[in-house]
């Protein structure tokens, strides 16, 4: 069996919620730098997960179960309190579409801006600029300021840049359903191409169809713990069953 590209080993994460907020030096001085009473909000509890080359793994669960926190940990945006995360490949996170857009700039400059933030070099962006604009169907509007784009146009551009920036591992958080039916179909097609090229993907979605159709296996989180793990279709069905109240 191949070595996992991403290894999440017994990871726990909690956030500390202070009962008495102190955001300024003045507040700390006034309180004599005494420790604040605070509550521990556990988000993930001993979660283990492995991603191997070419695999597509889905993560499902109700709101607040820790899905997005898990992705942010995998992407290195958060650091775990306990456990370890080992990454042996470059990760491209798409946790939100259009993060960092500058509405005062045109599409070309925004492609450079977002592409750079997603880890593309200037050379790579220059080389792929045409295909990005082509995919987003925005070539005639390339020099239009983003503030004049419709939300659909902006989302198409965001997708086009994100899909171009894919490294070894693609991490997607609830972003596989945007635009009209035609664009959605092309996004799904692009996703399949990425998979066919051997990339590994980690997908968070509330949509059983997306997990069932685009992932090989999946995990279901409940209150920060993995409660179901297995073939994607089975986990998606379990998630759906979990949503239906018992009669």
């Amino acid at each position: 069996m191949t070595t996992p590209l991403v290894e999440v080993d017994s990871v726990s994460k909690a956030f500390w919620i202070p009962d008495e907020p102190r955001h300024t030096i003045r507040e700390h001085v006034m309180a004599g730098f005494a420790p604040r009473p605070r509550r521990r909000l556990p988000v993930l509890d001993s979660v283990s997960l492995q991603l191997r080359q070419g695999e597509a793994v889905g993560v499902m669960g109700a709101n607040g179960c820790g899905k997005s926190t898990l992705l942010k940990l995998v992407c290195g945006i958060y650091i775990p309190d306990e456990g370890t995360i080992t990454t042996r490949a470059a990760i491209t996170p798409i946790l939100d579409l259009g993060v960092g857009w500058n509405p005062e700039l045109d599409a070309v400059d925004n492609v450079y801006l977002i592409g750079g933030m997603m880890g593309l070099s200037l050379m790579e962006i220059s080389r792929s600029l045409d295909s990005i604009l082509e995919f987003a169907e925005l070539r005639p509007y390339a020099r239009m300021h983003l503030k004049n784009y419709s939300s659909g146009m902006a989302a198409r551009l965001a997708y086009a840049v994100a899909f171009q920036a894919v490294r070894d591992v693609l991490v997607l958080d609830e972003v596989l359903a945007v635009g009209d039916a035609g664009f959605k179909k092309r996004c799904e097609q692009r996703y399949r191409e990425i998979r066919a090229a051997g990339h590994t993907t980690l997908v968070v979605s509330h949509e059983p169809y997306i997990i069932g159709a685009f992932c090989d296996r999946a995990v279901m989180l409940q209150q920060g713990r993995i409660v179901a793990e297995g073939p994607a279709a089975d986990v998606a069905a379990a998630y759906l069953a979990n949503l239906v109240p018992a009669t």
Binding site: G76, I77, I91, P93, L95, D96, V99, G100, M117
Partner: peptide, 11 residues
């Protein structure tokens, strides 16, 4: 000023 970036991307 740029917190919206590093909360979603590893910059």
């Amino acid at each position: 000023a740029k917190s919206f970036l590093f909360r979603k991307l590893r910059v």
